[in-house]
Design a protein around this nucleic acid. Structure first.
Lengths: 172, 172
DNA sequence: CAAATTAATCAGGGGGCCTTATGATATATT
DNA sequence: AATATATCATAAGGCCCCCTGATTAATTTG
């Protein structure tokens, strides 16, 4: 039976990590403000870009369902990206209700550039610690996947797909 | 010299964790939408509430600087909280430029209910793993604190204070 | 007292999301 | 063919998180 004190301790550290990381990211954005490019890659416009960089030429609807967004939100983000010349919209010829979204060169570049870089805060860990961390995170992730799939099976499968796509750069 | 493969592996797992946790949280909000109360405690209105629950009766300016927000953002959140009857505004008598913000009873209650609960995904870890995790997170956090303090010393000190306040419940 | 500084507000903007309505196109039914 | 229904996208409106710039009111300083 697990020690509650240890659990609480770890939980606190995790919360702390989230907070610290959050503000570190904020500072990074403000400093490195490459003219307003702070897509978090997991959200909004960044999400769309990422999805397209895996499979270009999706319809808005496809994007919406695969990203668990409403069609409306998707339209909004796509329009914003169009304004920035990162994607293009064109009507599908086979089904003229559909709008096909394609990455521009700039878009492709922008999507790819959150390159698979190892964050500095991992560089201070020993090999053993890195292994431990990976093992632990795997367990935690599985637990969260479980939570998601029981709460919302639909989301789960969409999510699972997009996640493996997005993590392809990291493993193997 | 640390193994780059191990670093990458751990980094990937961490990203995965962030993504999974993100959507788990989203689902939680949508499901448990207790009449639109999703303050994330680390942001916006929740941040203000938390700060006031540590030290009531701060001025807007005090709030802004201690939370690393602009005066304008602070005003916005405060006004929203006033509308919800969670805080009150009153002009300071000693310096009539200042506006003192105070928690209402409802506000105090709302702030306190962040429930220092151990998340489910930690419950599956053994005592050893919990210790390992805590140790590792401590290192990562220190590394991030470093990053923050060199990038923005001002933020650092403000942040450091508010973080210890906020984590008080976790480490006794 | 005039000037400088400080606290707060107004106006406006950029992100992230959703719901409700509507219009347009496609497909199924009669 | 003609009508009904289902699907894709848009428009409009809301709420949340946050910032920059300009302006007003009160206090401190020279």
């Amino acid at each position: 039976m697990p020690n509650l004190v240890k659990q609480k301790n770890a939980a606190g550290k995790l919360i702390e990590f989230n907070m610290v990381k959050h503000t570190a990211d904020e500072i990074y954005h403000r400093t490195h403000a490459d003219k307003g490019e702070h897509q978090s890659l997991f959200q909004g416009q960044g999400k769309i870009l990422l999805a397209l960089s895996q499979t270009d030429g999706l319809s808005q609807k496809d994007l919406a369902t695969s990203l668990n967004l409403t069609a409306q939100s998707t339209a909004e983000f796509v329009n914003k990206l169009v304004k920035k010349h990162l994607v293009t919209k064109e009507k599908s010829t086979t089904d003229r209700r559909k709008t096909i979204i394609r990455l521009t060169d700039a878009g492709r570049k922008s999507a790819g550039k959150e390159s698979a870089k190892v964050p500095a805060y991992l560089k201070g860990l020993s090999d053993t610690e890195l292994d431990q961390l990976a093992t632990i995170l795997t367990k935690m992730n599985d637990s969260l996947y479980d939570e998601i799939s029981t709460a919302n099976p639909t989301w789960y499968s969409n999510f699972r797909n997009s996640i493996t796509d997005r993590l392809r750069d990291w493993f193997l």
